[in-house]
Design a protein around this nucleic acid. Structure first.
Lengths: 149, 149
DNA sequence: CGTGAAACCCCGTAGAT
DNA sequence: ATCTACGGGGTTTCACG
């Protein structure tokens, strides 16, 4: 998959604002709307474009606490059934199977620290196969971006 | 900030596909385009909507390794200057100031594990004030979603 | 890979309910 | 808060270079 300078400009525009009109990109770049359209179709088919998403601001919904939880599993634990249980926890936004100290690693959003404690206590701890976990609370997110194009 | 069922439908549509036409949402929901338009304006003003973003698939660019790095800082370290150095590393997509075991916690995307080793060795380790760090490689991401609406 | 034209569709606003 | 209507503009496809 090779992308040229024009593709990069299209991608950068749409990363900044996914709802920008193609014709507006076309004017910026200096080629016709039809050409941008054609390139976009190709980029979409190439799987370089995963999706176009509206991004919600969790703080506006009262979710002010971001935390990472490293989970240790018992050797007898069945991963797939644990993942299934974790998926049911709506506060979980990421879940990774990891090498390193932990077996799985999750990112959660909670309304406050008390809700986080409650979540750990009533939703994580009780999952069968979870032996222990370690929590890291994000006091401040300094960087949030996509891979550089 | 109170949102009703119609707002939720609008938000869910746009999380799934940020480029969907307002009129298409209108037909789904069963009210006019003008009404959807007005609701969207309100949602945007409320800061519930952070942005509309095209999401890139890093794998299509050859970035196959996802890792988290917990960094310990020396007590004398100046946070802001360290963050500044970290921002210059293009593979870093998230950076959090955390409570817990680590001082800062970052998420990185690399082409492969060798590139990750190189990054840790030549870009993280050498930052003034970094005393040590711990790496967790994501072997598989099982969940990637936004807060549930 | 690029173009412009044509047909179709959408957006944003205005004014009424 | 919703509607219809409208004018300006956007999207998509096409034949062609």
């Amino acid at each position: 998959m090779k992308i040229d300078g024009i593709d990069k400009k299209i991608i950068r525009s749409l990363i900044k604002d996914a709802r920008i009109p193609i014709l507006s990109i076309a004017r910026d770049v200096g080629i016709s709307g039809a050409a941008i359209h054609q390139r976009l179709r190709k980029l979409e088919k190439s799987e370089l474009i995963d999706s176009y998403q509206m991004k919600i601001n969790p703080k506006a919904l009262g979710y002010t606490t971001v935390a990472f939880v490293g989970v240790f599993l018992e050797t007898t634990a069945v991963l797939s059934s644990i993942i299934k249980r974790i998926k049911e926890i709506k506060e979980v936004v990421e879940c990774h199977y990891t090498s390193g100290n932990f077996t799985i690693f999750i990112k959660v959003l909670c309304k406050d620290n008390e809700d986080l404690m409650l979540l750990l206590d009533t939703k994580i701890k009780i999952i069968n196969g979870v032996s222990k976990f370690e929590t890291f609370i994000s006091l401040n997110q300094q960087i949030d971006r996509q891979i550089h194009i």
